[in-house]
Simulated assay, not measured.
Amino acid sequence: MDTYVIAFALVLFASFFQGTFGLGMKHISPLKWEAWWLVYSFIAMILLPIGWALAVVPDLWTAIASVSVSVIFFSMLFGFLWGIGGILFGISVEYTGISITYGIVMGLAASVGSVLPLFYINDFTEQASFPFILIGVGLLLIGVLITAIAGINRDKILQSHESGQGRKSSRKGILIAVTSGVLSALLNVGFSNASPIIKAAEMHGASTQNASLAAWVVVLLGAFLMNAGYSIYLLFKNKSWGSFQVKSSKQAYKWAIISGVFWFAALGVYGQGAALMGALGPVIGWPILLGLALIISNIWAYRAGEWSNAKKPFSQLLMGLAVLIGAICLLGYSNYH
Rank of each mutant, 00 (worst) to 15 (best):
I133V: 14
S129R: 09
I133Q: 13
I146S: 00
K156C: 07
E126R: 04
I121C: 07
L108E: 01
I121A: 13
L139T: 09
T125D: 14
L145K: 09
A128P: 15
I149A: 11
I142P: 11
V115G: 06
N153A: 10
F89T: 11
Q127I: 07
L108K: 02
V93Y: 03
A150P: 05
S114G: 15
L108A: 09
G86E: 02
I135V: 15
N122H: 13
T101P: 08
R154Y: 02
A128Q: 08
G86M: 04
F130E: 00
G86V: 02
G138T: 08
G138L: 14
I87C: 07
S114F: 07
M106D: 14
N122G: 03
T101M: 08
I142T: 02
A148K: 01
A128K: 11
G97M: 01
D123F: 07
F89A: 05
I91F: 09
G103F: 01
V137F: 12
I146W: 07
P131D: 06
D123M: 08
V137S: 13
G86N: 02
S114W: 00
Y95D: 14
L141P: 06
A150F: 10
G138D: 06
A109S: 15
I146C: 12
A128W: 05
V115R: 04
T101E: 01
S114T: 06
D123H: 12
V115L: 10
G97P: 05
L140V: 06
F119K: 00
V112G: 04
V144P: 06
I98R: 04
D155Q: 12
S99D: 06
E126K: 14
M106T: 14
G143L: 03
L141N: 09
V137I: 13
L140Q: 08
G97S: 04
P117A: 07
V105K: 00
G138P: 09
S99L: 03
V115Q: 05
V137D: 00
E94T: 14
E126A: 12
G136H: 02
G113M: 00
L145F: 13
L139E: 06
F132V: 07
A110H: 10
P117E: 08
I135N: 05
S129Y: 03
L140W: 14
G103D: 12
P117N: 07
I152R: 06
T96D: 01
I152H: 12
R154I: 11
N122S: 13
L145N: 08
I87R: 09
L116I: 14
I100L: 13
L140N: 12
G113W: 00
K156Y: 05
L88K: 04
I142C: 04
V137T: 05
L134I: 15
G107H: 00
I104V: 14
N153D: 10
I91V: 15
G136T: 11
D123S: 13
I149F: 03
Y120P: 05
L141V: 15
I149L: 14
P131F: 00
